[in-house]
Design a protein around this nucleic acid. Structure first.
Length: 205
DNA sequence: TGCCAGGCCCTCTTTAGGGCCTT
């Protein structure tokens, strides 16, 4: 595992759960090293059935676009190669992890990284934010955006910028820099009221 | 921008209910 390589990923899907037949239709991801985006991955994928009007409207991904796309199986083999050796971040990671696990299980592939969640971390670091939706966090952190949300690569890029803004905020407020992935995972499950003490302790260590 | 599912988190809680997030 490369401690300095972190992949922020985002799926667009046909619905909310692979347990009821939903499939991935797009994957986007950026690789962060040393606080910089050093690589990107984006691909539409054909789920083998028509997506609903709601999903087409929500994502802008139409059935015509998917008709020319590679299959989920072909794309996910490429993506499995892309993420090997890196830890993973997603906004509301429980959602993306379910789809990643389901799509990789279909092709017999595995990944060796661990997940953490930018939503859970943001609820702890930005406790005064009115909302922790990705779009609202982009405004809160004053990240530049053209508003093209709900496409996988764009959302992964915005998540990466919010993620870096959170790390900057932790550094500025607590003097805690270069947190390890294990520290991030600890932060993501620490009770909100204990977060200040935890980060102050890391800052003075 | 949904009614689907599921994890997190809060509270008028824990033998539960409902809002927040993700598509």
């Amino acid at each position: 595992m490369r401690a300095d390589s972190l992949i922020i990923l985002d799926f667009e899907t046909t619905g909310l759960s692979p347990d009821i037949g939903d499939r991935a239709i797009e994957i986007g991801a950026v690789r962060l090293e040393g606080g910089e985006v050093v690589d990107k991955f984006q691909a539409l994928m054909n789920p083998g059935f028509q997506v609903s009007r709601f999903i087409a409207d929500y994502t802008g991904i139409t059935n015509a676009m998917l008709a020319d796309a590679l299959s989920c199986e072909e794309v996910m083999h490429e993506f499995a190669n892309f993420i090997q050796g890196s830890n993973l971040i997603a906004h509301n990671a429980s959602f993306d992890k379910r789809f990643l696990d389901a799509e990789l299980a279909r092709i017999g592939r595995h990944y060796d990284g661990e997940f953490s969640c930018s939503l859970l971390v943001s609820r702890r670091v930005f406790q005064d934010a009115i909302s922790h939706k990705l779009g609202e966090l982009v405004k809160y952190t004053r990240v530049k955006s053209n508003g093209e949300f709900h496409r996988a690569l764009y959302d992964s890029e915005m998540t990466a910028k919010v993620w870096l803004a959170m790390l900057d905020d932790i550094g500025e407020r607590y003097g805690a820099f270069d947190l390890s992935f294990e520290q991030i995972k600890t932060l993501a499950k620490t009770p909100k009221k204990s977060v200040g003490k935890l980060l102050a302790g890391w800052g003075s260590a």
